[in-house]
Design a protein around this nucleic acid. Structure first.
Lengths: 240, 240
DNA sequence: CTAGCACCTATAGCGTTGCTATATGAACTG
DNA sequence: CAGTTCATATAGCAACGCTATAGGTGCTAG
């Protein structure tokens, strides 16, 4: 209806589908909307893409190109695990900026198209982890580490997408990310990720006390005192 | 069409929907299939559940009851982190035995119903982690740890569901599980504060925090705040 | 130049979907 | 027994994914 009439119908259909898929807030997108926006009639869609899912697959494929491009466009920083962190962050960012596309790619269960895409993403991650493994930084085989990290990455991204935008907390992502990398790496010295040098015992103790207080209903403090006390406790035990 | 005619239509609708949802391999389930199987006509469905999604929500709610029941039916083994492992495994098992129900619960993006269910699951996990925190076994606040672990748990489960049954490898689950628990727990080489391995109480935690605070001069609190904080801490740790 | 031939697109419509305006029966309440 | 409420059925709408069929376009062959 309002798309560049110069372009071939196939391209117009792709763009219309991508646009509607990105803008419809979770609602279903109909072929009629798509063909109308593309300025084409129904059979054209089915001639080029077979069926609705075929069109969506094509959109996803294009989106995946974008995703892979983003994942590859990192200067290999010489520190493979740092690159893994950036891959993770890029993954999350992709999911948050294109939630619907992401959901079609990773959130659905489509016995055909999904595994291939996931496998590609795994391969990308594994490639990077291979360098880490070569440098003796890996605790487990790269393939298993890649699958594990990617699974956590997808879980975190889905959880963030499902949350209302206003209380999305990226800390969930960084924390899970570093947890996973920490667990699969041999470098348990806690060099890059952790901010806890000497404060860690304070943090641990504060967390423990916080939990204990909430569990045992101590009556040593008045309720207003307790409220303030817990607030401070949270400040101490919180990351920042 | 073949369901117990003694039961009230509402129950028959629920069972029919659950059965069709569980048996249809990812394909969409129509209201006509459901009402036909339940031996009811369309308006009955809409009278009781409002719309199709309302019916599905009811099915999900019932499924969630089952899930929670499974998560609660563990003897608290005295080792909280071990219980977290069992919660994780139970979560994965639930997802693998009821994949479609699981997908509706955790794989979808439904800004209304989903977060509440996820929040419940988080609360369940947090509850268990609170015990670990009270025992000084936690590196991070229980809420954040719960969200992080649950996110990874969901990601792993979705990935396993999406895989062909024949090459599902549960090692992905156990490895990711242990990675996450390992990363958030203090129990690596040396415990920081709660290493007295007995059940830590409010008093013990308060004492530990007190000592740790004085030793490390955290700058999260102003000096006057710190003074009052320490006084309360003293009151807690002194009077029992 | 024209005939044939792929290729691409449109007209029109089929069967199914989620859902509802309306009516009917049953069960309780006064 | 009249009135009201709850629960179910009849019939049908608008929107959906999709397609049988036919018409137009540009190519190459003779």
């Amino acid at each position: 209806m309002s798309l560049d009439d110069q372009l071939p119908p196939k391209t117009r259909l792709l763009r219309a589908a991508a646009e509607l898929l990105a803008n419809s807030e979770g609602a279903a997108v109909s072929t009629r909307q798509i063909t109308k926006l593309a300025g084409v009639t129904a059979p054209t869609l089915y001639h080029h893409f077979g069926d609705k899912e075929g069109l969506f697959d094509a959109v996803v494929a294009a989106g995946f190109e974008e995703y892979v491009a983003g994942e590859r466009d990192f200067a290999p920083s010489g520190e493979p695990l740092e690159d893994v962190r950036r891959m993770w962050d890029n993954h999350v960012q992709f999911g948050l900026t294109q939630p619907h596309l992401y959901l079609v790619m990773f959130g659905n269960i489509r016995p055909e198209s999904r595994p291939s895409i996931v496998a590609d993403a795994e391969a990308l991650m594994e490639e990077m982890l291979n360098k880490a493994a070569a440098a003796g930084q890996l605790n487990v085989p790269p393939r298993e580490a890649a699958r594990s990290i990617l699974a956590a990455n997808v879980g975190v991204t889905l959880m963030l997408i499902a949350e209302p935008v206003e209380d999305r907390n990226l800390e969930l992502s960084t924390m899970t990310r570093d947890s996973m990398i920490f667990a699969v790496s041999t470098d348990k010295a806690r060099g890059a990720a952790g901010d806890d040098s000497g404060k860690s015992s304070v943090v641990v103790a504060a967390i423990a006390l916080n939990a204990a207080l909430q569990a045992s209903h101590s009556d040593q403090l008045s309720s207003s005192e307790l409220k303030l006390f817990l607030e401070w406790l949270h400040r101490i035990s919180g990351s920042s």
